[in-house]
């Protein structure tokens, strides 16, 4: 409901000097340091980086879902209304109010033993007072909203009885049905084929735009950033190397790393190139 947007806090995410460390048998391992990010409500921000860049740690830290062995420190860490630094850590974490997450592989994220109807229903009812019957109706509507043609069948099905694309759509429905203020998408399509990826990102971006939900997307794919984000944050080895307006950063990167990352991906426009540009010392 676009009318609500005005009532929301101006910034969905306000993080300064975030550091994420993990306890390992050899002492503390620092996955992210000096991470600062401000996202105003309704923006679409992409965090891009390769494996080991710390982008997933950032996303799990902001969603409040890191395990007990992780330490999160920051001078400021406000997500919607919640101050992350004031939250006690727990073995089984609590949701940061207003924050939903979409994971990479719905096969792992959906609960294998419950039907789609039950999982979607409990998410719709949330902690609110929606009746079961009403939740059932809304669940069917949400499935239609994410482009599932036979909601009645899918509601009765369990995740493993659906195709990969359907599962991903179901996950998106569950994440968005509570109308969150912030959606964190952790590599939402990287397990999928390109045509499906594009369809699903179209779906995510159009739904979040309808709901006025802020989108924070984590990806390794510069193509996805280009098409589906307003701002981009480039991470490398636990630090932010560059951030700014997506079009500007990709057109004229200021950091060498960003430039190298842009240059080394093969593209259909350079079929006859003899060799790909490679990054020296990054492998």
């Amino acid at each position: 409901m676009p009318g609500d947007v005005g009532l929301r806090a101006a910034n969905a995410v306000e993080v300064a000097d975030l550091r994420v460390r993990y306890r390992t048998p050899d002492g503390w391992f620092t996955a992210v340091s000096d991470f600062s990010l401000t996202v105003s409500s309704g923006q679409r921000v992409a965090i891009v980086g390769e494996s080991g860049s710390g982008k997933s740690s950032v996303c799990m830290a902001l969603a409040g879902l890191l395990p007990l062995g992780a330490a999160v420190e920051a001078t400021t860490a406000r997500i919607i209304e919640t101050d992350l630094t004031a939250r006690p850590t727990r073995a089984i974490p609590y949701q940061v109010p207003g924050v939903s997450v979409v994971f990479q592989n719905a096969m792992n994220a959906l609960d294998p033993v419950w039907t789609v109807g039950s999982q979607l229903g409990t998410a719709i009812r949330g902690r609110g007072a929606t009746s079961r019957a009403r939740a059932r109706v809304l669940a069917g509507e949400w499935l239609e909203r994410v482009g599932i043609r036979d909601p009645a069948r899918v509601l009765r099905a369990r995740p493993y009885e659906l195709s990969g694309g359907m599962r991903q759509r179901v996950m998106i429905a569950i994440a968005l049905c509570s109308q969150p203020e912030l959606l964190i998408a952790d590599e939402p399509t990287s397990a999928l084929d390109v045509t499906l990826s594009v369809d699903l990102l179209e779906l995510i971006t159009s739904l979040t735009a309808d709901l006025g939900t802020t989108l924070l997307m984590i990806t390794h794919d510069i193509g996805l950033c280009r098409a589906y984000s307003d701002r981009v944050v480039v991470m490398h080895r636990g630090r932010v190397v560059e951030q700014g307006d997506t079009e500007q950063v990709l057109a004229a990167p200021s950091a060498d790393y960003t430039a190298a990352l842009l240059a080394c991906a093969p593209s259909l426009g350079q079929l006859n190139d003899h060799r790909l540009t490679t990054m020296v010392g990054v492998s």
Binding site: E50, S51, C264, A265, P266, R275, M279, V282
Partner: peptide, 10 residues
Amino acid sequence: DVSVQGAVLN
């Protein structure tokens, strides 16, 4: 990773 892909393709 993308940065490694390029080198391996080469």
